[in-house]
Design a protein around this nucleic acid. Structure first.
Lengths: 258, 258
DNA sequence: CCAAAAGTGTTCTCGGTACACCCATGT
DNA sequence: ACATGGGTGTACCGAGAACACTTTTGG
């Protein structure tokens, strides 16, 4: 392959975010510090970067859409189906990959916690805490850093936090998502009012019982309320990957890309 | 070429913005409506889209950086050297170009008005008013629309308007740039305070004489003050294209890309 | 003196923050 | 009853919008 290519090769990768599941060690103190974001990485099975951790991704087939390729490759490698998927940036420094010129169109995705349980997790796919990342292949550390900044920025002017949660959720759960992403405590009273004023929430009327205190209301998001700024015809929306996740290892195409 | 390519081809295009030069028809009423933005387009000399207007761009060479290719191709086709250049989005729908799969990494650029005079302008390169665009090849109309939205959004939280002006400028000139981009009148008093509070301006101490009223102060931008959010190592900065613009026609590479 | 734009001062509203306080449930 | 988080009320602060007003030049 790559006899002496006069063109760059095109790859698609994705930075995936999920909430760390509650550590059920019974210590009430857990609730005091914000939960953290986790990112799934895959181990590279070939050169360059053999053995290092990298973002899930793959080469772009001729006739597949960019976001389609992002959703497919992340599903093949991790078994995840993203609830939110948006293009992040295209990285193409000539020397970002040793040997071969590779241009990577990078996406970022949000999956909700339940998905994490269903996700592949073996010696070659692992979840890492946002602030405990391993050594990463290529420029992937910088890419994740950039994705985190974008997530934090976008959270405040858009309402995308629900993509990290299930269908129904309490105000406190939603607030903890914001706290985890922004890495700081938020005032419950003010958070409630801000969210309610945005009009993105719908009160289901139901309440969550079984807590050791006053039962909180359950909300869901207004689906009509997803005005995310993206290129005109294709708004960044929850993406339907092959829902029946049948994860396969990478290597379907030659080499692994970045 | 393209025997039966199993990969997409990679192109780089740029949406370039400049202020429309003052129409010197002497009517004082000109000052009453905001100036408009202008965009240079090039006519396609080959299929697909022969004869239609399109964004300046070219194929990505193997060993050239993305922003380098953007700066070079826009300079080759239009003779312009951008003062500001930033990646916009990567467009890659499988059917956006008839016949061949083309993925375009699109940049957007700002040039100041003086540049416009020096720019190439012939039957195959022409400036179009933002709201009087011709029929465009491929998905370029949607791309320009997206670039306009990005410019308007970025103007308010970042201070990039100076990239459309020369070295020294008055507060009113800067305000008219904002008015042209945002397409609405701004209160001179409040605009002044907002800009001054941002700390991005430096008073040169000079004043512009020769007006028929009180001479306004001349300002310049604080170069240290360009904290633009971009991927970590490569901040979006004024870009040094080949400064001695020697415009050449496209066609150096096979076909014209999108 | 007058026109016209430069530049200043004052007030108002609104979104976000801090924080005191009441409410409803399980134990 | 009481601990615990759910939920409400209220006061403050700073950024921006509206607009009256003063200043400085050319004609």
């Amino acid at each position: 392959m790559s006899q002496h290519d006069t063109h760059a090769r095109l790859a698609v990768s994705t930075v995936i975010f999920a909430l760390a599941p509650d550590q059920a060690d019974g210590v009430a103190d857990d609730r005091e510090r914000p939960a953290s974001l986790r990112i799934p990485l895959v181990r590279r099975l070939r050169e360059p970067g053999l053995g290092q951790w990298a973002l899930p991704g793959g080469w772009l087939p001729v006739s597949e859409a960019l976001d389609g390729a992002a959703a497919r490759t992340l599903n093949e490698t991790t078994g995840l189906a993203p609830k939110y998927l948006e293009q992040l940036y295209t990285f193409g420094d000539p020397d970002r990959s040793p040997g071969e010129r590779v241009v990577s169109v990078v996406y970022w995705a949000l999956v909700h916690s339940d998905e994490v349980e269903r996700a592949v997790s073996d010696e070659n796919v692992r979840w890492f805490d946002e602030d405990a990342l391993p050594d990463l292949a290529f420029d992937h550390a910088a890419i994740i850093d950039y994705a985190l900044r974008r997530l934090r920025t976008k959270l405040v002017y858009s309402r995308i936090a629900h993509a990290l949660l299930g269908e129904r959720f309490t105000m406190a759960e939603l607030r903890r998502v914001h706290e985890a992403v922004l890495r700081r405590r938020l005032d419950p009273a003010n958070f409630r009012r801000t969210i309610e004023a945005s009009g993105t929430l719908i009160d289901t009327g139901e309440r969550l019982a079984g807590t050791r205190h006053r039962p909180p209301a359950l909300y869901r998001f207004d689906p009509a309320h997803s005005p995310v700024a993206s290129p005109s015809p294709a708004p960044a929306q929850p993406h339907a990957a092959s829902a029946t996740a049948s994860p396969t290892r990478p290597g379907t195409h030659s080499k692994e890309p970045q």
